[in-house]
């Protein structure tokens, strides 16, 4: 892959590792499962980026396959924790959500196992390896799900905010969460196109490389705003709602 995707990957990996550690530390304080699940998920995703970027940075051919495979395993493990997080936070009473998490986990596992059976350990042959589609689809379902839940919760949170029952920052966090889901889903689409192109031409295209970098940068910026909102952003969010301003004055 080229420079844009590499820089985007390094940046994303760092943000996911920091956010993951932050949430795991919070889970020790609160003794609550959601923080631990999300923190573990983001930390594993951060590790997967480390695994992908090392062979790209060092151009070390013998390490490429094992590290790309490890990156794939970390990504999928993170996705399972992530799906579990969505389930217990947004729909813990819903039986369909439980089955969806199980299905995502089974598809991710089967996708990797099937890919190994046809020799595609790294998951870079979407055109010749049918198993690739199984874990790719499961990943897309998980990221789309978070987007859907974010956009379902956001209007409800706005209603609660008007009654003083929801913090404006929490309300905004649902919106960001929804947008992150869309961005991650778009990223999966870019990755699909990029990987298919690579399998056909055996080169990473510059256009897709730049698209990958841009989408990655947008995603991690949103993740940063969710977990580490800067002061100016907090002030902007809390001052953005005219009804809230009126209530405060």
């Amino acid at each position: 892959m080229g420079e844009s995707a590499f820089l985007g990957g390094v940046f994303a990996g760092l943000v996911y590792l920091i956010a993951g550690l932050h949430l795991i530390r919070l889970s020790w304080q609160s003794q609550k499962a959601p923080e631990l699940l999300l923190g573990t998920s983001l930390f594993l995703w951060g590790l997967s980026y480390v695994c992908w970027q090392i062979p790209i940075a060092t151009a070390n051919q013998p390490l490429t396959q094992p590290l790309f495979f490890a990156g794939r395993v970390f990504t999928h493990a993170g996705t399972i924790f992530f799906a579990y997080f969505i389930w217990i936070v947004f729909c813990d009473q819903a039986r369909w959500a439980r089955y969806l998490v199980y299905t995502i986990a089974i598809c991710l596992f089967a996708g990797v196992a099937g890919s190994i059976s046809v020799g595609d350990w790294e998951g870079i042959r979407p055109l010749s390896n049918r198993w690739w589609w199984l874990d790719w689809t499961a990943g897309v379902v998980a990221t789309s799900w978070v987007g859907v839940e974010g956009f379902i919760q956001y209007p409800k949170a706005r209603q609660r905010m008007r009654l003083g029952l929801c913090d404006p920052l929490v309300c905004n966090r649902y919106l960001l969460w929804g947008i992150v889901g869309v961005v991650w889903t778009v990223y999966s689409g870019v990755l699909l196109h990029q990987t298919a192109e690579f399998e056909t031409y055996q080169v990473w295209s510059i256009t897709m490389d730049r698209a990958n970098g841009v989408v990655e940068a947008i995603g991690v910026t949103l993740v940063w705003l969710i977990f580490f909102p800067p002061r100016f952003y907090q002030r902007w969010v809390c001052g953005a709602d005219p009804q809230l301003k009126a209530a405060e004055s």
């Binding site: 919070l26 609550k32 609660r160 929801c166 920052l169 966090r173 649902y174």
Partner: peptide, 9 residues
């Protein structure tokens, strides 16, 4: 969810 999302940051 509100309580969880307020704890996250």
């Amino acid at each position: 969810p509100d309580d969880i999302f307020s704890r996250l940051a």
